[in-house]
């Protein structure tokens, strides 16, 4: 696949979702760097990038990502997925995750599974929820400069993560 701005091989895949419209383009690393895409903080506004003047930045979510060209487990390619809309194997979901994330909203009510899970995964999921909540508390503690609480939270999180690895599937 070739870069949209020059003829080099594209390695950066960029998806922009604004006002419910999905726009995709592919760039080589050099052009991507020039556009500031590899560094999310340095992003140009979507409008500038698309060459249509300044856009309303507040209205859009920009998801810069790099996506694999091929699934390392089964050899199925991103092109294959785009062509037939199906995956080659379970691991393809990691390899083409960003491409998938873009398509999910038009297929499903939500992006996160809410249904039945086998017991092992349920525990893992509960643990992840706990860690996420603590991480939020940690950020708040740091912001309010409560470093003592932050240190305690950090230790708890580390412990939970360690325990989770041992006990998870």
């Amino acid at each position: 696949m070739k870069c949209d701005s020059c003829q080099e091989k594209a390695t950066v895949f960029y998806t922009q979702i604004a006002d419910g419209q999905v726009k995709k383009f592919v760039l080589c690393e050099k052009c991507a760097n020039e556009q500031g895409i590899t560094n999310p903080d340095g992003l140009l506004s979507p409008g500038e990038l698309m060459g249509v003047g300044a856009g309303a930045e507040g209205d859009s979510d920009v998801l810069p990502f790099e996506s694999a060209e091929e699934c390392s487990a089964c050899g199925f390619t991103l092109e294959d997925f785009r062509k037939i809309g199906r995956m080659g194997c379970a691991r393809c979901y990691e390899a083409f995750g960003s491409e998938l994330a873009m398509r999910l909203p038009s297929m499903h009510k939500g992006m996160v599974h809410q249904g039945y899970l086998p017991e092992g995964l349920l525990k893992e999921q509960a643990l992840r929820g706990k860690v996420e909540a603590l991480e939020k508390e940690l950020r708040e503690a740091v912001e309010s400069e409560d470093y003592e609480a932050a240190a305690g939270l950090r230790d708890t999180i580390q412990e939970l993560k360690k325990g989770g690895k041992g006990g998870g599937k």
Binding site: M87, A90, R103, H108, V112, H113, Q114, P118, E124
Partner: peptide
């Protein structure tokens, strides 16, 4: 079974993801 905590059951076609139901 191929199952992920976030995406649920992994299926050949993403239109069946999650519950697979």
């Amino acid at each position: 079974f191929a199952v992920d905590g976030t995406l649920g059951y992994l299926t050949a076609c993403p239109t069946n993801l999650g519950t697979g139901m």
